[in-house]
Simulated assay, not measured.
Amino acid sequence: MTFFFSTLPVTWPWLILITAQVAAMVRRTGLAIALLVLFVSVALVTGLMSPTAIVAVALGLIVAFFLPRQNGLLAFAGHTLLILWCLALGAHLLPGFNNLKLLDQVQASVSSASFTLHLNLDKPMVFFAVLLAWPGMLNGAIQTRIRPLSAGLMILPGLFLLGLSLGAVRVDLSAPNWWLVFCLSNLFLTCLTEEAFFRGYLQSAITSRLGVTGGLIAASLLFGLAHISGGPALVGFASLLGLGCGLGYYATRRLWVPVAMHFGFNLTHLLLFTYPGPV
């Protein structure tokens, strides 16, 4: 907790962004928009985002806003552009975003490899865009399908067993002093954004064309490929994690389910195993 409060002089703008995400999740659209505008204004004044970055975000959100009203070739072109825009933001390819490096080459434990944590400004914008483009992801809840949900949940501990057998992780209990910052960043800036994009948006869109199996497989593989910078093994692990989360979303049609599964997996990884891997 002490570490979290010590970072507030530089991290407080992200609390506005997180509150905007929460408001959007509970369908308080007006409040979410107002908070997002406030966050972007603060980011501009404080130099966290340049005018170029704000224009890029605005253009993406405008395209996303009009997409549900389009069909045919125009809809296909619009979704293609939006996906490319989302991938560019997720890969930090667009200029003008000064993502804060909050943790630099830290170790969760003496047996864990070092890693760096940034508080991203660009990637969370994807969350708001896909909500506009595919609003049904928040209002399509169904009676829970127990078997696919159970299968998805079983994949998560199975991944740790696989990781242990391959030496990708080792059991190592730890609770670093920056755990709360990690939780907020991972839950809202990573898991919520990624699940909204890969499950709520891509899996839903692909399923509408290729069916349930096609949507699950394609979205899971794309999620894995998004982690290609970590090497082929990480692509495989991420694809299986994506499949588990995808089953959770298919079984419930509630976005918070795959978000909770994704975050729970990452938090368990941090607290009970070497994170992100052994030295």
Results as ranks from 00 to 15, higher is better:
Thr2Tyr: 07
Thr2Asp: 15
Phe4Cys: 12
Thr7Ile: 08
Thr7Arg: 11
Val10Cys: 02
Thr11Leu: 15
Thr19His: 05
Gln21Lys: 07
Gln21Ser: 08
Gln21Tyr: 06
Val22Pro: 02
Met25Val: 13
Ile33Glu: 05
Ala34Leu: 14
Leu35Gln: 10
Phe39His: 08
Ser41Gln: 12
Ala43Asp: 05
Leu44Glu: 07
Leu48Ser: 07
Pro51Trp: 00
Pro51Gly: 04
Ile54Tyr: 00
Ile54Met: 01
Leu59Phe: 00
Val63Tyr: 00
Phe66Leu: 07
Leu67Arg: 05
Gln70Met: 15
Asn71Met: 04
Leu73Gln: 08
Ala75His: 04
Phe76Gly: 06
Ala77Leu: 10
Leu81Asp: 01
Leu84Asn: 00
Gly90Lys: 02
Ala91Lys: 03
Gly96Phe: 00
Phe97Tyr: 04
Asn98Trp: 00
Leu102Glu: 06
Leu102Ser: 03
Gln105Thr: 09
Val106Trp: 03
Gln107Trp: 06
Ser109Ile: 11
Val110Tyr: 03
Ser114Gly: 09
Leu117Val: 14
Phe128Leu: 02
Leu131Arg: 08
Gly136Tyr: 05
Asn139Arg: 10
Ala141Val: 04
Ala141Arg: 09
Gln143Gly: 12
Pro148Val: 06
Leu149His: 06
Ile155Ala: 07
Leu156Phe: 03
Pro157Ala: 15
Gly158Asn: 09
Leu159Cys: 09
Leu164Met: 06
Leu164Glu: 12
Ser165Phe: 15
Leu166Lys: 12
Gly167Trp: 11
Val169Asp: 11
Arg170His: 13
Trp178Cys: 02
Phe182Met: 09
Leu184Gln: 12
Thr190Trp: 03
Thr190Cys: 10
Cys191Ser: 15
Phe198Ser: 15
Phe198Glu: 12
Phe198Trp: 14
Gly200Glu: 14
Leu202Asp: 05
Thr207Asn: 09
Leu210Ser: 14
Leu210Arg: 11
Val212Arg: 10
Val212Asp: 05
Thr213Leu: 09
Gly214Gln: 11
Ile217Ser: 13
Leu221Ser: 06
Leu225Ser: 05
Ile228Pro: 01
Ile228Tyr: 14
Gly230Phe: 13
Leu240Thr: 10
Leu240Cys: 04
Leu241Val: 07
Gly242Thr: 08
Gly244Lys: 03
Gly244Glu: 08
Leu247Gln: 11
Leu247Arg: 06
Ala251Arg: 12
Thr252Ala: 01
Arg253Ile: 00
Leu255Ala: 14
Leu255Trp: 03
Leu255Arg: 13
Leu255Thr: 11
Trp256Gln: 14
Trp256Met: 12
Pro258Met: 10
His262Arg: 05
Phe263Cys: 13
Phe265Val: 01
Phe265Ala: 04
Asn266Cys: 02
Leu270Phe: 06
Leu271Val: 15
Leu272Met: 15
Tyr275Asn: 13
Gly277Asp: 04
